[in-house]
Design a protein around this nucleic acid. Structure first.
Lengths: 185, 185
DNA sequence: TTTTAATCATTCGTATTCAAATTATTTGAA
DNA sequence: TTCAAATAATTTGAATACGAATGATTAAAA
């Protein structure tokens, strides 16, 4: 009804009117009450749907290429950044070291990566890609959905910039430290 | 000292120059010499960081309020949408039914939700919130980071709109149907 | 030198998440 | 009516993901 004219900024042809403010089509006959003035909820829902899309794509990768999204991301980081320690790799792909241990385990099991204790500092473990790993990289699509990659390329650059900056703005806001919230003295 | 795990990621600039792999480790506000189509990479990274932020927030919720993000999302959907079946709930929160089963299990274990077999159709399970569940909702913050919610409110509406639409555009592109995939007739 | 602190990888426990297979129930067609 | 197909919830199995705790190793302080 009272459509915000701003909604037309980025929208091209929308065949299904599912993005009208105040109602979001969730499934057959399910229309949750969404406060009109709240972009918060729409953003939260979009984030959830993005996460789900990433996970589904990872499962598909696993079926078709015998490697999951996180494993592929790590492999690519290793291929690009040379041998890396567990902690370095964790920072590269924005995950915790304890997560990386499991991923490197599976990568090593498949012969795609290699663990090596550092001689200089025996606490460190250097991980690198094997030839089989390089081969797999060459034969496997990006960890990003192809549909997204392609759709993105077909957008005018102005819109690519807009999306990129918007996402990075969200990241900034989410990662912003809360300096206050002092534990009650 | 500093207990925020995200800080480990953010403050790694002064450790060392992180030689070759400078492209991947973008700090906030740092715009690298941009190669041809690097929007893709930046978007992928932003998505990964958003996912991580959501998960870290969920763990924090678990520690402070004895409920995780997904559990809270389901509880809110139930409180808002009345009794729901597993499948309906799954659609509301954009997750698969098999995931919801586990979440409802834990919600029921804690006495926050209630399962009930439908009389009309005994395949269906109606899930609803208990009084304890309502009480917890009243005492618990949003599943969305407060930092994001607050930062968002302080942005000019034009930018809120821009972010909302950009995210929904990404969702559209990621969920875009593969038109083919003809089910063999 | 000896002790203490810091760092690194790892293990542990819990939760989430998906697809695929399974079970119970309902619906539709022969 | 009977049986096959469809639908709903669940179970299963594998992978991810986090923080906290552990053990090994190095660095710093005493």
């Amino acid at each position: 009804m009272d459509r915000n004219p701003l909604n037309n900024i980025l929208q091209e042809k929308d065949e299904k009117p599912t993005k009208v403010e105040g109602e979001i089509l969730l499934g057959p006959g399910i229309i949750p009450p969404v406060p009109k003035n709240s972009y918060e909820l729409r953003i939260l829902q979009s984030i959830r749907r993005i996460i789900r899309a990433v996970e589904i794509h990872s499962h598909k990768l696993a079926q078709e290429h015998d490697i999951t999204g996180p494993q592929l991301s790590c492999l690519l980081a290793l291929a690009k950044g040379g041998p890396l320690t567990i902690t370095q790799l964790a920072r590269m792909v924005y995950q915790s070291p304890s997560t990386i241990v499991g991923i490197v385990d599976r990568l090593a099991d498949k012969g795609l990566a290699l663990r090596e204790r550092s001689c200089k500092d025996r606490r460190l473990v250097q991980v690198c890609v094997t030839e089989a790993g390089e081969a797999l990289i060459a034969a496997t699509p990006s960890p990003l959905q192809e549909t997204l990659a392609e759709s993105l390329k077909n957008l005018p650059e102005l819109e690519q910039v807009s999306i990129t900056l918007a996402l990075e703005k969200v990241v900034d806001m989410m990662e912003a430290r809360k300096i206050e919230a002092p534990p009650a003295l």
